[in-house]
Design a protein around this nucleic acid. Structure first.
Length: 588
DNA sequence: TAGAATCGCCAC
DNA sequence: AAACGTGGCGATTCTA
């Protein structure tokens, strides 16, 4: 592929180039940087390509103080414009650098990386690097050897040409992808995803504030407890260690399942094959050493997963944590998060209160109430299930009253708990066996209870069966926006079929929940323009926003409105409820 | 001995 | 596959 490019190094050339670029509605977009992290690298090049393999390569280094340099205004205007589509592969990268180093929010994004993920619909063996996507969709080989070259020094012709090509290839790639998206009816979900890129990069750039001192205080407590528990556990277990001597304890590695398990066996504990919590829990009552072990494990987990390691993610430049979100992190459409994973911070206040608004700012904590169950009610069109939501009262208590045929006031805590576990369980395609195990009733009783449950919610029952059968028949499941999951189910493999049915049940529900949240992100982003509010975290059905205290009340309303509106676009038969809290800390 | 696989556990 | 779904991640254990 031959690319015609022009290197731009001064204001006049940029003005002319942008004048030309403004005529196009579709632009290939790419940047070259000296680092992967916008907080500790330089933005070197911005490339914008048009049809017929033409590309403008802008040397940002030639424009000092790029973020405020008025000479770059024509470029900012084009990037921000909603009239031209900016196509990038993993637009998160390019838009993030543009926002941080050029001070511009990219308008109208098409992301070939996200598009590739959507089209592949969760197929395991598909990769989504630009090189592989280019081959797969347009049979184009890409030479990526320049990607890791030195983008700080004097640029070679090879580097400039490489940079130009990466932008130019976006044009034919998008054309092919648009065709595929249309074929697979993925245009809606693609727009939904593309519109989330900028809200998410804004969140990552903002980061979240973690109170280091509070975290350390909490950590000190845990560390002391860990030492005490480890010592006691070591004492109890040493009696069961073969090499135990009269002159002292035989120390074992308390984090080794094999060593701990062996020691426990020698103490006469009837050890199951695995030493997982749910296996050991039943033994805890009879064997104090097991209870001690479980307590140690929980403390050890806190220490290793939620200890000093988290503090290392605080970026010195901002004093905040800038985690990395994967927009399509799961095949269902859910996001995932790492470095660190802000979606798995323990729910306990002692941890969450360490995440707070900085300098007296407030946090708006907003989460969808029972969103997955509401989606299920909507999908199944089950009158009783829908009715349970319409009253607005305690959902699990109402379902308990319906299932057990009693008035809501007479529902016991135990009955409510049964109903609650079933309500959540059905979303995953729970079976009687599993339900029995987790509630402690016999399989027979579990079966009876499930019969009553589905007898009460007959349409829910038939919906779930259909969802299961549907994926087996079509090898495809979809969410409300059309997001797709493909499964290859081997014939006559009953376990695989049973598993696929659970996917068929769960994916549309979990995925629609993700759809709604992503729609809310965009509405929210639009709603807080020009305010002090900044998105700081997203946890599947929860959005956390940081804002100046004087604006908090107003921002809370905006957040709630955005989330409710997003839900109402998809869920029609039941009300959408969002719980909103204004707080100093990320705690319930 | 480095990287992969496994176990186990945190979140929703 | 815990016969309940989606992730990330740390420590240990296995493997080439």
């Amino acid at each position: 592929m031959e690319v015609y490019f022009q290197l731009i190094k001064d204001a006049e050339a940029l003005r002319k180039a942008c004048e030309e670029l403004e005529k196009y509605e579709v632009l290939g977009f790419d940047v070259e940087t000296t680092s992967l992290d916008p907080y500790d690298g330089e933005l070197r090049l911005v490339q914008l390509a048009t049809a017929h393999n033409k590309a403008q390569v802008i040397d940002i280094k030639a424009f000092p103080n790029a973020k405020t340099n008025p000479d770059l205004e024509p470029l900012r205007k084009i990037l921000a414009s909603k009239h031209s589509i900016k196509i990038a592969h993993n637009a998160k990268f390019d838009t993030k650098w543009s926002k941080h180093h050029l001070g511009v929010e990219t308008g109208n994004v098409f992301d070939t990386y996200l598009a590739s993920q959507l089209i592949s619909a969760g197929e395991q063996d598909r990769r989504h690097s630009l090189a592989e996507v280019a081959i797969f969709f347009i049979g184009q080989e890409l030479d990526k050897t320049q990607q890791i070259s030195d983008w700080n020094a004097e640029l070679s012709t090879e580097q400039i040409e490489y940079a130009a090509k990466d932008a130019a290839i976006m044009i034919p790639l998008r054309e092919k992808m648009v065709e595929k998206l249309k074929q697979d009816e993925l245009e809606n979900v693609a727009d939904l995803e593309f519109n989330c890129v900028v809200p998410i990069i804004a969140m990552e750039l903002t980061g979240i504030f973690l109170d280091k001192n509070r975290w350390n205080e909490q950590l000190d407590k845990i560390k002391k407890l860990q030492i005490k528990l480890a010592d006691e556990l070591q004492d109890s277990l040493s009696a069961g260690v073969a090499q135990a001597s009269l002159f002292g304890r035989a120390e074992i590695n308390l984090d080794s399942q094999t060593q701990v398990s062996d020691a426990l066996k020698n103490l006469g504990v009837p050890m199951p094959d695995s030493t997982r919590h749910w296996e050991l829990q039943p033994l805890a009552a009879d064997y104090p050493v097991i209870a001690k072990l479980l307590e140690y494990r929980s403390v050890q987990k806190s220490l290793t997963s939620f200890g000093d390691n988290i503090l290392e993610f605080i970026k010195s430049e901002t004093g905040r944590i800038h985690a990395d979100f994967r927009q399509i992190g799961a095949a269902t459409g859910r996001m995932s998060c790492n470095k660190p994973n802000l979606q798995q911070i323990p729910h306990g206040d002692e941890y969450r209160r360490c995440f707070r608004g900085e300098n007296g700012r407030k946090l708006i904590i907003a989460d969808y109430s029972q969103i997955e169950l509401r989606i299920l009610a909507d999908f199944s069109d089950d009158d009783n299930f829908i009715e349970a939501f319409e009253s607005g009262a305690d959902f699990h208590a109402i379902t308990a009253s319906q299932v057990f045929g009693i008035s809501a006031e007479n529902v016991s805590a135990e009955q409510r708990s049964f109903a609650k576990r079933l309500n959540f369980g059905v979303v995953y395609g729970i079976g009687a066996q599993r339900f029995a195990l987790m509630t402690g009733v016999s399989v027979k009783e579990a079966e009876n209870m499930m019969r009553r449950y589905f007898g009460t919610y007959t349409k829910l029952d038939s919906y779930l069966r259909e969802a299961g059968q549907n994926i087996v028949k079509n090898q495809v499941a979809r969410t409300a926006t059309g997001r797709m999951l493909r499964l290859r189910i081997p014939e006559n493999d009953y376990k695989a079929i049973a598993s696929a049915k659970r996917y068929g049940i769960n994916m549309p529900i979990q995925g629609t929940s993700a759809d709604i949240l992503k729609r809310a992100l965009r509405l929210l982003h639009n709603g807080i323009v020009g305010t002090s509010a900044r998105l700081v975290n997203i946890v599947h059905d929860e959005i956390v926003v940081e804002t100046d205290a004087n604006e908090a009340e107003n921002i809370a309303l905006i957040v709630e409105k955005a989330m409710v509106a997003a839900g109402n676009e998809i869920v029609k038969k039941v009300p959408i409820k969002v719980d909103v809290k204004i707080a100093d800390e990320w705690a319930k």
